[in-house]
Design a protein around this nucleic acid. Structure first.
Lengths: 165, 165
DNA sequence: TGTGATCCTTACGTTCACGTCAAGTTTTAG
DNA sequence: CTAAAACTTGACGTGAACGTAAGGATCACA
């Protein structure tokens, strides 16, 4: 019972969104509705659910997925949650444990594939930009060289390879 | 005069979008309206403009920018186009050339910064997923080991590090 | 036991990024 | 020269992802 019973406002603040958004995600089936909540009562969340929501929004943002795509990608992930729950119990037959783990592995692999594809595309973009940058810098140096001190080389802009704050 | 006079439909097909989208981008000022087009006449594009549009959509997609953000990011880039045009002419004073190049460098750096930030976030996500994956695989192996041939180890799913088609 | 803060549901409103339709014009192919 | 294909502007429509407001219930705390 580390951090039980967070309310929707707390959760929203924690992940940087609004209660409305969280309700909406529940509404479209992206988040599970806590099953034991008599309509009208407040929603209560655990820290684990906050984590899940964070992860979800991260995937959405970084992979540029629509909520529908996200739902598809994670529909399996519900199972993963159940997997984790079952795995925490010790009384599961190792055969079954193995099955669950393999399934989880499948889901992770699906996500990894998407992430790597994106990362690759971004890498390519970065390479091309770097290349363009190099060419620009080379041309500047050429001009400076040709102008042999006619005007001061005015200390070049800070290189782009600097610290990424 | 390599590939002059592409029509909006050709351009759309070339970059994988629709004429409407291109007109819309022009409408909101993301694409420049060809200045010498008497209203009513067909829009004509060059291969360079196709390239620019491709790049634009790529940035939008990979960086997850809104069209408004994209516009801000590229507002400067219009200048870059002019830079390239001017640089193609030889009769520009080297002093001016230098200025233009430095400006271009600034724009490139701004984009690079964004790209690198994103790439970093994606990298982190990938690392975490890989780590989770490792843990899952380790657990599976543990089970298999403990079960000393009770049931066949059923050849594990293909590793995620495979070819990225 | 109140009471202010937060939450509930319902429902309509909004913004972005286009889609779609209409009526007319321009280009291109024959 | 003509017909079909593609384009033009203008305007309204649409789906996704929420925002916002109303009227009322619930919760944490004194």
């Amino acid at each position: 019972m580390s951090a039980q019973s967070l309310r929707i406002g707390d959760v929203a603040k924690a992940v940087g969104t609004t209660p409305r958004t969280i309700r909406y995600y529940e509404e479209i089936g992206l988040l599970p509705e806590a099953p034991a909540r008599p309509s009208g009562r407040h929603r209560l969340y655990t820290e684990a659910e906050v984590e899940r929501l964070r992860e979800l929004m991260r995937l959405k943002d970084l992979l540029g997925l629509s909520l529908e795509e996200l739902k598809t990608l994670l529909s399996a992930e519900e199972a993963r949650a159940e997997v984790r729950a079952q795995l925490r119990r010790e009384d599961v037959a190792p055969e079954r444990r193995r099955e669950l783990l393999e399934e989880a592995l499948g889901h992770i692999d699906r996500q990894l594939k998407l992430v790597r594809k994106r990362a690759g595309e971004l890498q390519k973009l970065e390479d091309e930009l770097s290349e363009t940058r190099k060419r620009a810098r080379r041309k500047i140096r050429e001009i400076d060289a040709r102008a042999e001190g006619a005007f001061p080389p005015s200390p070049t802009l800070e290189p782009a390879g600097g610290s990424q704050s």
